[in-house]
Simulated scan of single mutants.
Amino acid sequence: MADGRELIHYDDTEPWLSGERVRDAVDHRPLPPAEETVRGGSQVRFDPLTGDWIAMASHRNDRTLMPPPDQDPLAPTVPGGFPTEIADSSYDVVAFENRFPSFSNRIGGEAGFLDGEELWPTMPAAGRCEVVCFTSDTHGSFATLSPTRARTVLEAWIDRTEEIGATEGVEQVFVFENRGAEIGVTLPHPHGQVYGYPYVTPKTQTMLRRAREHREATGRNLFRDVLDAERRAGDRVVFETEHFTAYVPAAARWPVEVHLAPHRDVPDLPALTDAERADLVGAYLDLLGRLDRYYPDEHPLPYIAGWFQAPVREGRDEFRLHLQVFSVLRGPGKVKFLAGSESAMAAWINDTTPEKVAARLREVSR
């Protein structure tokens, strides 16, 4: 890219797939070097009251927000048109370094203490943040992708998980998608992101602690026991395939929340076999389709979908790959705001029951 960032193509159509043609587009935008854009913009600070690391990313306040359709930065660059992040006039799937990353090895800096106080350790916001564009089409969503294209995206996620996981300083890789204005999406183009964190995230730390406690008490894997218990109960199971089960967790926090877990114990996406990957494509498209049909008016459901994978080094024998997808929409046009109890105390109150949600998701099968 013009500022030195990396862009990777994942092609599934001709003439690119066979190599008959080679991508040779040039990014002519007058951008400053990526190091200048992010330099001094991020730092990670330790919260002594919770034990969490918090990223301060001031340069992200200038990122693009809901541009007009003819200035979509994730669209292909057409001759004479708006120069986008992808210089080619067409593409299948692409991944590229985020122009406004929360974490980047380009940011620089050293570990230390804020104001010289040992209470507040700091470290560079090292790592990697990438954008993954599912399609060059500016409309639609992951749910509207063909199975072939969905498989290409899955393979891109797997490749990026492996590459980013091998990046210096990265401790955990998180593949996720934000969809819908209610979620806070800044670009409507169908896309997701991949974060390489310089620490193990707080939620993962909590799950790992619980998994270790469960192992000490029972000798078993907590994630496996949860999946087996949900399958035995059955009333919160949405559907099962040969290799995956989708279910609403017994203690769901969100108005609509579904987990999708493999039947085999695997730590991350790269560990899936070819048969499991093929099965996952159909299962994930099925699940997202049901979510879009969840409300009677078929209002496309805003959601966050995140793949929880084992950290790069820590707890790989305890953690288990699974998807968590949830929505803040508690009814058509009704957003569940995280008010006092949830935001201040992390004490969750759900406005429905997991059993009702699962029943509705079974009803809207096609």
Rank of each mutant, 00 (worst) to 15 (best):
Y284N: 08
H263V: 04
L119E: 15
T186V: 09
D268Q: 06
P332W: 05
A55V: 15
I349M: 11
R210N: 12
G40S: 03
E20A: 15
V78M: 11
L361F: 07
A339T: 12
N61C: 09
R5T: 14
P147L: 06
V170G: 06
D265N: 12
R106I: 05
A344V: 12
H243N: 12
Q324C: 13
W157S: 03
E314Q: 14
G289C: 07
H259M: 14
D292E: 12
F326T: 07
T167D: 11
V364W: 00
H299T: 15
W348M: 11
A34H: 15
A57Q: 04
D268G: 08
P147V: 08
F337I: 04
I54N: 13
I164D: 03
A181T: 11
H59G: 07
S58N: 11
P296S: 10
L119I: 09
R212F: 11
P249N: 08
G19E: 07
T201Y: 00
L291W: 02
L145D: 00
S89A: 14
R366Q: 12
P300D: 02
G192I: 02
S18D: 06
L31N: 11
R45Y: 02
T122K: 04
S343R: 14
P69C: 01
F176V: 06
W16P: 04
M56D: 14
V256R: 02
L280G: 02
P79K: 01
N350W: 00
I304H: 13
A95G: 13
R60G: 01
Y247V: 05
A111R: 15
T135G: 00
L361S: 07
N98D: 13
A217C: 01
V93P: 01
R236Y: 04
L321P: 00
I304R: 13
R366Y: 10
S341Y: 12
P332A: 11
R5N: 10
P190G: 02
V200D: 00
L338I: 05
T37L: 15
E363Y: 08
G140E: 00
R290Q: 05
S343V: 10
E257F: 05
L74P: 00
E182F: 03
D228M: 10
R45W: 04
V226D: 12
D72C: 12
D27A: 06
L119A: 15
H243W: 12
T152H: 03
E97H: 10
G196Y: 03
G51I: 07
W348S: 09
W53F: 06
W16C: 09
P198C: 05
S18W: 06
R99H: 13
V153N: 01
R215N: 09
I54M: 13
